[in-house]
Amino acid sequence: MMTHEKNNHPDHILNLLRQLPRVTAPANFEEVTLLRRMLKELPRASAPEDFEEQVLRRLKEEHQRRKLPRIRWNSPRTWFAAATAAAVVGAIVYYFVVHFAKSPESTPVPSQPVIPYVVPADTQLEQTIAPVPERKKEPSSIQRRKTEPSTSVTPSKKVSPGVPEHEEE
């Protein structure tokens, strides 16, 4: 069938095909062929014997390293996460500062008036020098009873702590 069709081609088509321009080899064809042959025949470098083992070892090492979370500071994601965290912390701090600044609890406590410490006249001087907090307490009933019978008319003195009594005299 095919041969029959081929034989029926008009002659002018064959003539046209024959008239197609012929492609010629470039001027340096032989040189290029030689060059390509030389390149093709170059000895081939091959991988070392333990190549696969080395790669697998490196992969295992890398896998181990990846298990530990590492912060990559050169990544924009890291910087974004850090900025977000800083903004959140800042907002929380700001909220609490503003909230407590407005609350009545945060108003300053008025300072207590200074009450002069009155020491009875017959108290030992050594006892008055050191400002011991317990002494600010009211004298006990026993002590009061001891002091009352004396019915001394001697006025009580104001003694400022730290000032020796004999200097006044």
Partner: peptide, 19 residues
Amino acid sequence: GFRELMRVYKDDLVNYAYR
């Protein structure tokens, strides 16, 4: 699969990289 990949291509890649 990984071993097979290396077995097939390792020499070609070493040669390419060397040249």
